[in-house]
């Protein structure tokens, strides 16, 4: 950790599209990936984050600052997370889950995963494929067989495919 205790240390993070961000070390080390770099002494200059683009990183930093400003109160942290994710569209959530995984931030991972699950639950198979760009590589026969195998999961499901 920083040698001079007491003085807030600032880290500079660089996204894969070369945007630079300043963030307090105390907030940034919510990411285990960044914390390890700091502990290994590789955080002197700029920390390159090769798997995160600038737009997503800006969002993650907002989260880091917001959540680290809340004292140890799980209820308040949870409501901050809910609010933080409430206006994010599906594509942003997918980018965030990738970033949270790369940055090794388990609380953000769980919150985003839960949110994605919550959205997926009510949508049709076609909607999920479309939104996530999942290519259906089954042959029609295979797809019919899988559907038959798990027929019960398609019964009584009402989907709403707006947005």
């Amino acid at each position: 950790m920083a040698a001079e205790t007491g003085t807030p240390t600032t880290l500079t993070l660089k996204s894969n599209d070369d945007e630079l961000f300043s963030v307090a070390e105390s907030a940034a080390i919510l990411s285990v990936t960044i914390r390890n770099m700091v502990e290994d002494g590789c955080a002197g200059g700029v920390i390159p984050l090769d798997n995160v683009d600038g737009k997503t990183l800006a969002s993650v930093i907002t989260y880091m600052n917001g959540i680290s400003a809340i004292p140890a109160d799980e209820e308040k942290k949870k409501s901050y997370r809910d609010k933080f994710l409430s206006d994010k569209d599906f594509e942003t959530l997918a980018d965030m889950v990738l970033a949270a995984n790369y940055l090794n931030m388990s609380c953000l991972m769980d919150a985003v995963s839960a949110k994605i699950a919550q959205v997926m639950e009510k949508k049709s198979v076609g909607w999920v494929r479309r939104k996530f760009g999942i290519e259906n590589d089954y042959t029609p026969e295979e797809e019919a067989a899988v559907k038959e195998e798990h027929k019960w999961t398609f019964e009584g499901v009402e989907t709403d495919d707006d947005n």
């Binding site: 699950a117 999920v128 494929r129 999942i134 290519e135 089954y138 798990h150 999961t153 398609f154 499901v157």
Partner: peptide, 11 residues
């Protein structure tokens, strides 16, 4: 139920 249903998405 919904996690089993995702088996239909792709291989």
């Amino acid at each position: 139920k919904f996690s089993v249903r995702t088996s239909i998405l792709a291989r």
